[in-house]
Amino acid sequence: DTFTFTLDGIEVRLHGASEELIKTIEELLKRDIRWEELEKWIREWEK
C-alpha cells in the first residue's frame, strides 16, 4: 500500500507504510506540523 499526503506543498508517498505509522502521521498533520518536524520524526521512527 502507498500512503500519499501533501505537506508544505510537497507530495509525499510512503510505500509499505504500516497502519500504525499512517495513523501517527495523520495525527501529526492535524497539528499543522512542518516538514522539518515530520522528517525528523520519520528518521526516529526508522531506528
Rank of each mutant, 00 (worst) to 15 (best):
D1I: 13
D1V: 09
D1Q: 09
D1E: 13
F3K: 01
F3P: 09
F3Q: 00
F3V: 02
F3M: 02
T4G: 09
T4E: 15
T4R: 04
T4S: 12
F5C: 09
F5A: 05
F5R: 01
F5T: 05
T6G: 02
T6V: 15
L7T: 04
L7D: 02
L7C: 09
L7F: 14
L7P: 00
L7I: 15
D8A: 03
D8F: 06
D8Y: 04
D8W: 03
D8H: 04
D8Q: 03
G9Y: 04
G9F: 03
I10F: 09
I10W: 04
I10Y: 09
I10E: 06
I10A: 03
E11S: 05
E11H: 04
E11F: 05
E11L: 05
V12A: 02
V12N: 00
V12T: 02
L14I: 15
L14E: 00
L14R: 00
H15I: 15
H15W: 07
H15R: 06
G16M: 07
G16E: 05
G16Q: 05
A17Y: 06
A17Q: 02
A17K: 04
A17P: 07
A17N: 03
A17T: 04
A17D: 02
S18R: 03
S18D: 08
S18V: 03
S18I: 03
S18Y: 03
S18E: 04
S18A: 05
S18W: 03
E19Q: 12
E19M: 13
E19F: 09
E19I: 14
E19V: 14
E20L: 10
E20G: 09
L21D: 15
L21R: 04
L21M: 14
I22C: 04
I22M: 06
I22W: 03
I22Y: 02
I22R: 07
I22G: 02
K23V: 08
K23E: 08
K23M: 11
T24H: 11
T24W: 13
T24L: 15
T24G: 15
T24Y: 10
T24I: 13
I25F: 03
I25E: 00
I25T: 01
E26D: 07
E26I: 13
E26R: 10
E26T: 13
E26C: 04
E27Q: 10
E27K: 11
E27W: 06
E27I: 08
E27N: 11
E27P: 01
L28S: 04
L28C: 08
L29A: 02
L29K: 02
K30C: 05
K30D: 08
K30L: 10
R31I: 07
R31N: 14
R31M: 11
D32Q: 08
D32P: 07
D32R: 05
I33M: 06
I33H: 03
I33A: 09
R34W: 03
R34L: 06
R34Q: 07
R34A: 08
W35E: 01
W35A: 03
W35G: 02
E36D: 14
E36C: 07
E37W: 08
E37L: 06
E37T: 09
L38G: 00
L38W: 15
L38M: 13
L38T: 00
E39I: 14
E39T: 08
E39F: 13
K40Y: 11
K40S: 11
K40Q: 13
W41S: 07
W41K: 12
W41L: 15
W41V: 15
W41P: 01
W41T: 14
W41C: 08
W41N: 06
I42V: 07
I42N: 00
I42L: 15
I42F: 08
I42C: 06
I42E: 01
E44I: 07
E44F: 09
W45E: 04
W45M: 07
W45Y: 14
W45A: 05
W45R: 03
W45I: 08
W45Q: 11
E46T: 11
E46Q: 14
K47I: 12
K47N: 12
K47T: 14
K47G: 11
K47Y: 11
K47V: 13
K47Q: 13
